[in-house]
């Protein structure tokens, strides 16, 4: 069996996740996120521990983990780079960005040999007004350009702090997997309230003094 970092503390946390739901199986997805944060992959041990805790078979856990694209079958790198490749981002430069990054890292949908990056094409990430978009550890890197992408990778490689356009300072993919498992990291106050595009309409309204009608008297 491959190495696993799952220990008593992890199992305790997996049980905490289960306690959030009236039926333990509901905890499966956050549990898988936690396993990824601990092992860097949906590990064999992770599948077995979850199956045991939830009371289902390993085949069933595997059936679920392979359904969702965020769960990795092969160990992920320190940083996860997701380049949006759905039509709009692709057309507006996403394809070019992907090719550029892929060439630089020497991987096509995979993890670099040094374990620093996992590169994937991702589908529409709900940031179309910021196209083209790259997600780093599922944080928004909006309005990307080749130059910005180069700097992003330079900074990540050098370990320099990287701030997403809308999000908290990049740490690692695994840290954010823990967040997705429902373990809050205390960083909600980092980053902006809204990006520029999100504010397009409301700013025009302010400029023009437009608003919704006044409401009924209370």
């Amino acid at each position: 069996m491959a190495q696993s970092n799952i220990d008593e503390k992890t199992i305790e946390e997996l049980k905490q996740i289960m306690a959030r739901y009236p039926q333990p199986r509901s905890a499966l997805m956050p549990m898988l996120h936690l396993v990824q944060s601990v092992d860097g992959v949906v590990s064999q041990r992770g599948i077995e521990v979850i199956a045991e805790l939830v009371g289902i078979t390993e085949a069933q856990v595997q059936g679920v983990s392979t359904f969702y694209t965020q769960y990795l079958k092969h160990p992920g790198g320190k940083h996860h780079i997701g380049v949006c490749s759905t039509s709009l981002c692709a057309v507006m430069g996403g394809d070019a960005l992907y090719d550029r990054i892929s060439k630089r890292l020497g991987v096509d949908e995979g993890t670099t040999e040094d374990g620093m990056f996992t590169l994937e094409r991702v589908e529409c990430n709900a940031a179309c007004d910021f196209a083209p978009v790259i997600m780093v550890n599922w944080e928004f890197m909006d309005n990307m350009t080749p130059e910005k992408a180069d700097k992003l990778l330079d900074d990540l490689e050098a370990g320099r702090p990287v701030k997403p356009t809308r999000g908290a300072t990049i740490t690692s993919w695994r840290d954010n997997e823990r967040l997705l498992a429902g373990f809050y990291d205390g960083k909600a106050d980092e980053g902006v309230s809204a990006g520029e595009a999100s504010l397009a309409g409301v700013e025009i309204a302010r400029e023009n003094n437009w608003s919704a009608p006044k409401g009924e008297a209370k």
């Binding site: 599948i47 390993e58 085949a59 069933q60």
Partner: peptide, 14 residues
């Protein structure tokens, strides 16, 4: 169990 999805969906055993 069924595993993976879409065109890659398959019957799988652990």
């Amino acid at each position: 169990s069924l595993a993976s999805r879409g065109r890659n969906q398959q019957v799988a055993v652990y």
